[in-house]
């Protein structure tokens, strides 16, 4: 199986779909001539030309609205947000139009589009450029929200996203563009609504998504030294949500720790904890623990930024609490 970076996996999926389906186009700031701020679209302008790889003005509301119109007329646009922080400029288009047109039109029109870009922090971009928006976008019916962590899933879920008949919020792990992994060739689609068991275990279920999954795997290694067997679940798909995999795991381990970079209040971890207590109450041996980002705007200083995000020790402490150790 070829090894490629997370960035190359995304590019490969988009290029494959553009080859396969000429209604797929890409819009965004600096994605063409410059190759994308994060070089995800590098080379695509040369390959597919300016009619399908469209450099836009710095106007997220405008080009997102334009893409929604294209999608309603039968095209499959991919919109790049240079970072998801800039999507706040386009929230009205995304929530009021993209998420609702199918509903408003009683199914006569749909919005098959992908909005993608780096999400989350960890690279010292400070408060206005550091947000984890999965809880925010996951709140709205009509949107699908995914957050892959491996190059394998980045490609497989991008293929699925482009073929999806509804708007997809594709949250990329911005800090992981350069990480490498095996990616199958061809149409290895990864379905939405299916979590991945990243590591099997029996004593405690660690739940995460995006770059937190890599931390959870390191935590699981450390716990193994103490003879604690941790199961790591990579949610991958925030909406739709795979309740079954989660609940089955907790029924086995009786304990869960949910980890997220975003703030705790009204967050993905809160929803996960609620699902567990609704569906696995009688299997719980301890309250579900949440480990989240510090309740403050993201700091710029490196030491503070590290302190503001969940770390391995916090997760291990939570594991010890649910194990009553």
């Amino acid at each position: 199986m070829p090894v490629m970076t997370y960035r190359e996996a995304l590019r490969s999926a988009m290029a494959d779909e553009m080859e396969r389906d000429e209604s797929v186009v890409i819009l965004g700031e600096d994605i063409g001539v410059y190759g994308g701020t994060h070089l995800v679209t590098d080379g695509l302008l040369d390959r597919f030309g300016p009619k399908r790889v469209i450099d836009t003005p710095i106007a997220e509301g405008g080009f997102t609205g334009a893409a929604i119109g294209m999608a309603m007329m039968g095209m499959r646009p991919i919109v790049e947000m240079m970072t998801w922080n800039f999507s706040f400029q386009a929230v009205d288009q995304i929530i009021q139009n993209a998420a609702k047109v199918r509903y408003f039109s009683a199914g006569q029109a749909g919005v098959p589009m992908v909005i993608r870009g780096p999400n989350g922090g960890g690279v010292q971009l400070s408060a206005q450029h550091t947000h984890s928006l999965e809880g925010f976008y996951g709140h709205f019916p009509g949107l699908k929200v995914v957050s892959p962590v491996t190059p394998h899933d980045a490609k497989g879920m991008m293929l699925t996203a482009i073929r999806e008949p509804n708007p997809v919020i594709f949250l990329e792990a911005g800090a992981l563009y350069g990480t490498k992994g095996e990616v199958p060739e061809g149409e290895a689609l990864v379905p939405f609504g299916k979590a991945r068991i990243a590591r099997e275990g029996t004593d405690v279920t660690l739940v995460g998504y995006g770059r937190q999954v890599n931390m959870l795997l390191r935590v699981a290694d450390r716990l193994a030294e103490d003879e604690i067997s941790a199961e790591v679940i990579d949610l991958r798909s925030i909406r739709p949500f795979d309740e079954q995999t989660l609940v089955e795991s907790v029924r086995k381990t009786h304990r869960a720790v949910v980890v997220q970079e975003q703030w705790r209040w009204y967050s993905v971890a809160s929803e996960v904890a609620a699902i567990i207590q609704e569906q696995a109450f009688d299997d719980l041996d301890a309250p579900v623990e949440r480990v989240s980002g510090a309740e403050a705007p993201a700091p710029y200083a490196r030491n503070l930024e590290i302190a503001a995000f969940p770390n391995e020790q916090q997760v291990i402490d939570a594991v010890n609490r649910v194990l009553y150790r």
Partner: peptide
């Protein structure tokens, strides 16, 4: 779920089941 002193007995849901 009740102790001798009439207080609620504390046990995890799993333990009660």
């Amino acid at each position: 779920t009740a102790t001798g002193s009439g207080e609620r007995l504390r046990a995890s849901p799993l333990v009660k089941r």
